[in-house]
Structure formats: structure tokens, C-alpha cells
Simulated assay, not measured.
Amino acid sequence: MLFHVKMTVNIPLDLDKDYVNELKATEKALSQKLQQEGKWTHIWRIVGKYENISIFNVNSATEMHEILMSLPLYPYMAIEITSLCQHYSSVKDEEIQVNP
């Protein structure tokens, strides 16, 4: 299943800087692992904002939910998610399933 996910990060300004840096480093490592596994297939920054647009390719909505909940910065995110499916006019087979 493909998902379009917009993540907006809102870290409180009074949060300990060392803790925030640790969260960011852990988040980066997890996101890169998920990219290498083929589950987080695309990630783009939104210019001038602490936001990204990502495409995930996972086996189920439950797996997508679990991935988002596992992100270290999840408690500080506003997330908009849209399930995607193949368009009838597409000449490409973009809806590829991740191996379980």
C-alpha cells in the first residue's frame, strides 16, 4: 500500500537541546533504515519549514500507523496521511508491495 504523508514538526522551544539532538539523530537513523528497507520510498523537505512530504510503501494501514508511532519525533508532529492507489490512466506500475 502506498501512502502520501506530510509531517510537520513542532518541537517546543523550551525542550532540552541535547534531548532534541538525540531525538533527531535517532529519527534520522530510523528513517534511513526504513528507506533502505524500501518502506520509506521518498522524502522531500518543504522549503522554509520544518516539514516533509514522504511516500511510504508498506503492507498495510496498520504497518503505516506503527511506523509513524515509532518515530522519535512523533509526539511533536502534525501528520496528514493519504492512502494512494494506481490511477487507471497510469502507464507505470507504481504500486509495488514491500516484501514481508
Rank of each mutant, 00 (worst) to 15 (best):
residue 4 H to R: 13
residue 72 P to I: 02
residue 61 A to F: 12
residue 73 L to M: 01
residue 31 S to A: 13
residue 95 E to S: 15
residue 95 E to A: 14
residue 94 E to A: 11
residue 58 V to K: 03
residue 48 G to Q: 10
residue 78 A to H: 15
residue 97 Q to T: 14
residue 77 M to N: 06
residue 37 E to R: 13
residue 28 K to P: 05
residue 39 K to P: 00
residue 91 V to P: 09
residue 35 Q to K: 11
residue 42 H to N: 08
residue 57 N to K: 15
residue 72 P to W: 04
residue 39 K to V: 02
residue 82 T to P: 02
residue 98 V to E: 07
residue 17 K to Y: 05
residue 94 E to P: 04
residue 10 N to L: 07
residue 19 Y to S: 07
residue 66 E to K: 06
residue 2 L to E: 12
residue 14 D to G: 00
residue 78 A to P: 08
residue 41 T to S: 10
residue 68 L to G: 00
residue 66 E to Y: 01
residue 63 E to G: 01
residue 37 E to H: 06
residue 90 S to T: 12
residue 11 I to T: 04
residue 29 A to F: 03
residue 53 I to G: 03
residue 60 S to G: 03
residue 29 A to T: 10
residue 84 L to G: 07
residue 19 Y to G: 01
residue 91 V to R: 13
residue 77 M to F: 07
residue 38 G to A: 00
residue 8 T to K: 14
residue 87 H to W: 13
residue 27 E to N: 12
residue 22 E to T: 13
residue 32 Q to H: 09
residue 85 C to D: 15
residue 73 L to Q: 00
residue 42 H to D: 08
residue 29 A to C: 05
residue 53 I to C: 04
residue 58 V to C: 03
residue 75 P to K: 03
residue 43 I to M: 07
residue 34 L to E: 01
residue 42 H to E: 10
residue 42 H to L: 09
residue 67 I to R: 01
residue 47 V to N: 09
residue 41 T to V: 15
residue 12 P to I: 00
residue 91 V to E: 12
residue 100 P to R: 06
residue 94 E to C: 08
residue 51 E to C: 12
residue 63 E to T: 00
residue 34 L to F: 04
residue 63 E to F: 01
residue 68 L to W: 00
residue 63 E to Y: 00
residue 3 F to L: 13
residue 87 H to D: 14
residue 52 N to T: 13
residue 46 I to K: 08
residue 92 K to H: 13
residue 89 S to M: 14
residue 4 H to M: 14
residue 36 Q to T: 12
residue 9 V to D: 08
residue 95 E to V: 15
residue 80 E to I: 12
residue 25 A to K: 14
residue 42 H to F: 06
residue 13 L to E: 08
residue 5 V to E: 05
residue 66 E to F: 01
residue 5 V to G: 05
residue 82 T to R: 11
residue 74 Y to S: 06
residue 89 S to Q: 15
residue 22 E to W: 05
residue 9 V to C: 11
residue 33 K to Q: 12
residue 72 P to A: 07
residue 23 L to S: 07
residue 94 E to V: 09
residue 25 A to P: 07
residue 44 W to T: 06
residue 23 L to I: 05
residue 77 M to E: 10
residue 48 G to D: 09
residue 17 K to F: 07
residue 48 G to C: 10
residue 91 V to W: 09
residue 56 F to M: 11
residue 17 K to S: 11
residue 58 V to N: 03
residue 4 H to E: 12
residue 27 E to C: 03
residue 75 P to M: 01
residue 37 E to V: 04
residue 99 N to F: 11
residue 9 V to L: 09
residue 65 H to C: 10
residue 100 P to I: 06
residue 55 I to Q: 02
residue 57 N to C: 14
residue 60 S to W: 04
residue 31 S to P: 03
residue 13 L to Y: 03
residue 83 S to P: 11
residue 49 K to W: 04
residue 40 W to L: 08
residue 31 S to E: 11
residue 16 D to N: 06
residue 64 M to E: 05
residue 87 H to N: 15
residue 33 K to V: 10
residue 17 K to L: 09
residue 63 E to R: 01
residue 53 I to T: 06
residue 98 V to K: 06
residue 79 I to L: 06
